[in-house]
Design a protein around this nucleic acid. Sequence first.
DNA 1: GCTGCCGGGAC
DNA 2: GTCCCGGCAGC
Length: 373
Amino acid sequence: MEAERPPVPVPGCGRPPPRAAGRDPAPPPPLSLPLPQGPAVGGGFAGLEFALPQEPEPRAADLGVPGTWAGAGGAAGPPTPSAHIPVPAQRDPPGKSRLDEVMAAAALTSLSTSTLLLGAPAAACSPEPGLEPWKEALVRPLGSCGSSGDWGWDLASDRSSPSIPSPPLPSEAAHFLFGEPAPKKRKSSVRVLFQCLWKRCGKVLSTASGMQRHIRLVHLGRQAEPEQSDGEEDFYYTELDVGMDVLADGLSGLSPASPAASVPPASPRLELPEPRTLSSLLHPLALPPVPVLSPVAPRHACVSSQGCLAPTRPEPQPTTVRTCVPTPPSRLGASPRKPRGDAKKCRKVYGMDHRHLWCTACRWKKACQRFLD
DNA sequence: GCTGCCGGGAC
DNA sequence: GTCCCGGCAGC
């Protein structure tokens, strides 16, 4: 198993899964901080690790309450509610309570920057006046309005910062912290799944906490106690926003050999080394950048033996999109070069003599944009 | 050898 | 950003 362990993620492009924005050095946090959202934790957590110490974090040792905190005595017995302090009956176990603190810190942090967070992105997301709807759709699949798409921050979920400090969630704090979709925030048609990026795993779970547990246990070989986590798991899974309809389609058509059955992607996220039906479903723009005929694109284009050029819309390709994804699951010998297409290219069609008729890409010796394969 | 095009350099 | 080209690899 160790051998399969993905390279230790390093901050920087190419590494952190989309949600681990906080670890991306470049654009600092306004976007990442706020999110009580899931994996935001990847980044959020990392940030918190720095931030927390500043707050007087109660430690068992400090309080003179041995064994109150997990790890003190070996994390053995189930935590018992304090006899000295009134504790809600439904009190979560210590690990959870610590999460609550972290969560609270996150909430505070996010509140302190909430205007930035809620304002800016919202503005950024607002459709550009001149932007045609279809473009807009392309640009902003499924409401994610990440600027580049590389990053994959899902603002729909990111904006789920709590406006009201609600009472501790009865359920997993992780739901709050790790991006369990806040029902009121998410469109009903969108659901978040978490996919393990571990090589040859690809497991998909519906909760971040579950996914983290899975990664800790199965891949990292650690105990399940979240408090023992250094947040590394965050690098090994990714969040998928899935339109329910798409998901339904995808799942129904789910068969190991149907990568081509993919539907236009919902979330600009992953590129997994191995074909995965679900992920292919989620592949972002399977369309190439836009097969626009270059200005030069002549009417003589019809010279081509293929008839008029309308660049036929390319088949959805399994690996069309390159996204900033953690390399963990390795490239698995993926050929860096894509197979050569059959289509005649500008060079062949027009010949060297009519180079001026070539598409720009051909002139630059780039992949032909006119005669797509 | 021809071709497509990646990677990288110059501007 | 545009433009060009060396060089690799598929045919």
